[in-house]
């Protein structure tokens, strides 16, 4: 189609020629502060709660499992294939279905389940953000379709913030087709600026730090 036409117009407008070299790009600006794990956890939990999310610091796998069980409260849930979830015994809780690798099956369950449960590849302390990379362990829809969302994060996965994430993963595209940053429950303020949670994604979010 217009590939060459548009590129040609761009070059003409800029007075450049094809394959002309590029001046040095200003260096990336990434600042990673010093922050111990304890401070990261505190900041992370504070931020999640400020966005009306719930947090729980689990001192054992059993504790994480019990917390998840209380949130699920006898409802149906779908869990991702993250190792942390089976390690904590969350995948074997009553009502929890897991182990899906088929897209259609997963989609059908995600659209009927009350709760979605995932791990997290990383979490960002300064914004209260969960970072999920789509893979055979994590599907996109589990953190999105069910109205209640539970994420289980290992404490050593807590980064200081976005700058550290992009230092570790300078090109997320090399790892996955989809990386998503989740900061609090789904929300809108499109009618009269009134805040409503859970418009399309989950309105309730629980983060368990193990």
């Amino acid at each position: 189609m217009s590939h060459e036409t548009v590129l040609h117009k761009v070059r003409t407008a800029l007075g450049r020629t094809a394959a002309q070299s590029v001046e040095a790009l200003p260096p990336a600006r990434l600042l990673v502060p010093e922050m111990d794990v304890e401070a990261r956890i505190r900041s992370f939990c504070e931020r999640v709660e400020a966005l009306a999310g719930k947090t729980h610091r689990a001192h054992s796998a059993q504790d994480a499992r019990d917390y998840a069980s209380r949130v699920i409260a006898g409802r149906t849930a779908i869990a991702s294939n993250a190792t942390i979830l089976s390690e904590c015994g969350i995948t074997s809780l009553p009502g929890v279905q897991a182990g899906f690798t088929d897209r259609d099956e997963l989609r059908a369950l995600c659209s009927s389940a009350a709760c979605g449960i995932t791990g997290a590849d990383y979490a960002l302390a300064d914004t209260g953000t969960l970072v999920l990379l789509s893979s055979l362990h994590e599907a996109r829809l589990i953190s999105l379709l069910p109205p209640v969302y539970i994420a289980v994060v290992e404490r050593n996965r807590l980064l200081t913030g976005l700058d550290e994430l992009l230092t570790i993963l300078p090109r997320p595209a090399e790892q996955t087709s989809s990386m998503v940053l989740i900061t609090g429950p789904s929300r809108t303020a499109d009618i009269e600026q009134i805040l409503v949670r859970g418009v399309h994604g989950p309105g309730e979010i629980h983060v368990v730090v193990v």
């Binding site: 055979l136 595209a173 996955t176 087709s177 989809s178 998503v180 929300r187």
Partner: peptide, 19 residues
């Protein structure tokens, strides 16, 4: 940060479940 920030790079890959 807004609630969701998506970094999308190409279609679903071999071992990914959805997308």
């Amino acid at each position: 940060l807004t609630v969701y920030t998506s970094f999308l790079s190409g279609p679903k890959r071999g071992d990914e479940i959805d997308g």
